[in-house]
Design a protein around this nucleic acid. Sequence first.
DNA 1: GAGAGACTACTCGGATACAGTCTGTCCGAGTAAATCCGG
DNA 2: CCGGATTTACTCGGACAGACTGTATCCGAGTAGTCTCTC
Lengths: 162, 162
Amino acid sequence: MILKSQVEWALHCCAILAGLPDGRYLSTKALAEFHGLPKEYLSKALQSLSQAGLVHTTLGPSGGYRLAKSPAELSFLDIVEAVEGKTRTFVCNNIRANNPCRPQGYCESSPCAVARIMWEADEAWRERLRSVNLAQLTETLSQEIPSKLWKSSFEWVLDRAG
Amino acid sequence: MILKSQVEWALHCCAILAGLPDGRYLSTKALAEFHGLPKEYLSKALQSLSQAGLVHTTLGPSGGYRLAKSPAELSFLDIVEAVEGKTRTFVCNNIRANNPCRPQGYCESSPCAVARIMWEADEAWRERLRSVNLAQLTETLSQEIPSKLWKSSFEWVLDRAG
DNA sequence: GAGAGACTACTCGGATACAGTCTGTCCGAGTAAATCCGG
DNA sequence: CCGGATTTACTCGGACAGACTGTATCCGAGTAGTCTCTC
């Protein structure tokens, strides 16, 4: 059970978009070039973000993507779920129902205890992802990345933002 | 990102094995029949448990599986990791290294901030799974399952335990 | 009746097959800005 | 110089292919009980 690489891509792209000035858009091409990723396939991840309403898009030249909300309003969970889907990581097939000792027509009252525990763990994972937003990520990155690299990257992006 | 169904199977099988008297073994055939699962494929999940050292096995007739430790010493995480592997759910491909502004030979000091956050969430998930053991599951099940069904299932299993 | 050998039922591991998902590429349709052209 | 038509650059979506993983089945090797046969 490993998350798609698209999740990683989407997170990094959102981190870049979070630093974009208001009203500017950044194209798939620029994002792909910046991260060294295949443009065509990266666009799939960005489409997922678009369909989830996390980013806004414009067509035509100087078109591209920008965040649909402020960075503080976008959590890691939003992005992960946009790409990976909202379905729980554990699906219960209710195999207890196959118990040969089970009386005919017996109907379970509550969900399987095994599934409940797995779902609680799933929720703990999601809760952790919900607790981190893009503004916090940007804050952390700005502290970690050498200011020289930080600035030149910003300018690189700005040069290509329509 | 969805866990394999083998995880579900392994958990339910361990729950059954947890109720087995000391020194008795239960075969793959019995476990598969009890849960309505394909015997051959279920054996793959049980093999994973065996390789991880969670269960003990005997060959020959009246052979099969039993837990290698007491139910209280076996956590959900042990079982999930035995089947699903111990690798983290998020893998960092360090795409930040492709940044075109990055100076030649620049070497990152710490792991990517994005990856750190994803790994923390992964750890929260694992921690939750680590906090539940088989004894607790058995306790919950014994309360939820009608005592009639509970007893007849126990006898069904005992009939087939070598 | 006792011991050795054959038999049986089971686990284990490898080989194989199929389906579904992930990764990646390609192309056409639609859109908006930029450019070009005629007046 | 101005307005409309064309071109261009981009997003979007679908179609498609290859690799990998998950699901499932089958079979041979090895093991431990059980049975049988011989002395």
